[in-house]
């Protein structure tokens, strides 16, 4: 199977992200990492390759900082990598990104499956996977928690989706785009062998001209960014002689405040 997994570099989850005085998002000197949700996508892509053969190409759109994410995916076991970068992509939205990614899938050619993480922890929209599928004209199965069956030769698969109500089983045809949920299972550690390979990897860079497309129009613009308003938090200690008395007072308080 020819598999593509799209990844994105994001600030570390431990970073304190805020809007600075100039209205720009900043996370200080916190490191950039592979988007945590994308780790599940890489894991799912690698497991699919291991079960059905073929190769996994990791693709990321972005400047050189995207190499952080690409190298991590290579160290986990992806076969090769492509970075998409072009000065005309300085401004983007999810749809323009999806247009670029769909063009990359077409240029790679003969792709059977495309994997995404469920969303990126920075923008948090979760729209790009579905938009990419729509542009490719392929089925989209979001929030995959497991594959029950995958018939690479027959071009079909059945997947379990992790949805709020429980699990939903979906059958689909290949080629397809899937996004992967956390329920898929813990992503593997990068191996040291993989790290050595990733550290030395020369990652080709594709421009829009390489993809044969113009810069897609950006339809959504962020007009203003602001920090969330500070929340006033008051702490009250419930006191009493016995645990039962404290619990009773706490229950009364919860009901009075209409928490329950």
């Amino acid at each position: 199977m020819k598999i593509v997994v799209f990844v994105k570099v994001t600030p570390d989850t431990a970073a304190t992200v805020k809007v600075d005085d100039s209205g720009n998002v900043t996370w200080g000197d916190a490191p950039l990492v592979l988007n945590p949700w994308d780790e599940y996508a890489v894991e799912a892509a690698l497991q699919t390759k291991e079960a059905h053969g073929g190769s996994v190409t990791v693709v990321s759109m972005g400047d050189e900082s995207a190499l952080e994410a690409i190298r991590r995916a290579l160290a986990m076991g992806c076969n090769d990598a492509i970075r998409i970068d072009d000065p005309a992509l300085a401004e983007d939205d999810t749809l323009s990104t999806a247009k670029v990614l769909a063009a990359a899938v077409q240029k790679i050619g003969d792709v059977d499956m495309v994997f995404f993480g469920r969303q990126a922890i920075d923008g948090d929209t979760g729209l790009t996977p579905a938009q990419t599928a729509r542009l490719l004209g392929w089925p989209y199965v979001g929030l995959v928690a497991a594959f029950r069956e995958l018939d690479a030769d027959g071009g079909t698969f059945t997947a379990e989706r992790a949805i709020e109500e429980g699990r939903q089983v979906v059958a689909s045809k290949l080629p397809a785009v899937v996004s992967v949920a956390k329920d898929y299972g813990e992503p593997r550690y990068p191996s040291f062998m993989g790290i050595r390979k990733a550290a030395r990897a020369k990652v080709p860079v594709w421009s829009l001209a390489d993809l044969g497309i113009e810069a897609p129009a950006v339809k959504v613009r962020l007009t203003q960014l602001m920090n969330p308003p500070k929340r006033e938090v008051q702490c009250e200690f419930i006191e009493g002689e016995t645990p039962e008395e404290i619990a009773e007072k706490l229950a009364d308080k919860i009901l009075a405040e209409k928490v329950l």
Binding site: A75, P190, I195
Partner: peptide
């Protein structure tokens, strides 16, 4: 540090 060193650091930090 080289890329390799940084990735080794990151991997072992996760385990630790």
């Amino acid at each position: 540090l080289t890329e390799e060193h940084k990735m080794v650091q990151e991997m072992v930090r996760k385990f630790a």
